[in-house]
Simulated assay, not measured.
Amino acid sequence: MSRVLLIEDHDRLAGLVCKGLAAAGIAVDVAGRIDTAWAAIQQMPYQGLILDRGLPDGDGLILLQKMRHAGLGVPCLVLTARDALHDRVAGLEAGADDYLPKPFAMDEMVARVRALLRRPVALHALDPSHDDLTLRSETGVLCSGEESVTLAPAELHIMQLLLHKHDEVVRRGALEAAAWGLSEAVTPNALDVALHRLRRKLLAIGSRQRIVNVRGLGYALREGDATE
């Protein structure tokens, strides 16, 4: 399942967009400001962005330019009421991949987001891999050699983040956000249950990789004994 970040400060519109994308099988996180969106982008391997221009702390193109200067190639659809030619040109020159003026038809917005998600992403691979593991994000299948196992949606998003940051320790809160979104209420042991299931699935497919708890810091993928 793909996850996108919607940067929109209008609550009603954000709710409608989330509903439309969820019906299409696309998970959505919402940020209402540039600063919170930038923090989320640094934390999560999003497959796409939907960006409003008129945000409380500035023009959304500021965020887009910052991302592109940092080498983040995540596809971006700009949604805005500014539909003059020079506004569209400014958005594309800032690094937008597509531009949809408000008001818009929900079916068209969903179709455009789907088209974005079919594009290759320079930094955040849709099918991340590390060592003997490859994750097929579209189908939720985790592979090691000839063996494979299907992951539940929360497990899929956790593994996407662990594989993307395979050389780093990922904090517990980041894994919870990956699995259930930035605004979803999570029970205290939900992550522990998901990690337990993922560990069992790694053993089942004979992977060398293990999800280890780095005490006081978070979790990371580390090589272990495939027979343990």
Rank of each mutant, 00 (worst) to 15 (best):
R197C: 11
R199M: 09
P75V: 03
T134G: 01
A194T: 07
H196D: 14
A220S: 14
L6I: 00
L13H: 08
D225C: 10
R3G: 02
E138V: 04
D29A: 00
H124P: 00
L151H: 06
D11G: 01
M109T: 05
A177N: 13
C18K: 09
R171G: 14
D127Q: 11
A152M: 10
L49I: 14
T139K: 05
D29H: 01
A27Y: 02
A125E: 09
D107S: 12
D57P: 10
G60Q: 04
V30F: 01
G140P: 12
L49C: 07
G73N: 06
D52I: 00
M1G: 06
G60F: 02
L195F: 10
E93D: 14
H164I: 00
R3T: 13
R3W: 03
I50M: 15
G60P: 05
R53G: 03
V89E: 13
M109D: 08
V89Q: 12
V141E: 14
G60K: 00
G15I: 03
V74W: 04
A122S: 14
D9N: 15
G216T: 11
A190E: 13
Q47K: 02
D52K: 00
K19S: 14
Q160Y: 00
L217E: 15
L182W: 03
L117Q: 07
P153Y: 00
E168A: 10
D11R: 13
L217W: 06
E223F: 04
R12A: 15
G25V: 01
E228P: 07
V149A: 14
H157N: 01
R199N: 12
D192I: 04
R210T: 03
E155T: 01
H124E: 10
N189D: 15
H196M: 12
D131F: 13
L198G: 03
E155V: 02
V170L: 01
A39D: 14
L163T: 01
C143N: 02
K19A: 15
A96D: 08
L116D: 07
K19G: 08
A105Q: 14
R200C: 10
M159T: 06
I50R: 02
L221H: 05
H69W: 10
E168Y: 09
V28Y: 06
L135D: 01
A23M: 13
D97Q: 13
A204T: 04
L182K: 05
S148A: 14
R118D: 14
D57C: 11
L163A: 06
A111S: 15
I26Y: 09
R82M: 15
T150D: 01
H196G: 14
A96W: 06
D225S: 13
R118H: 12
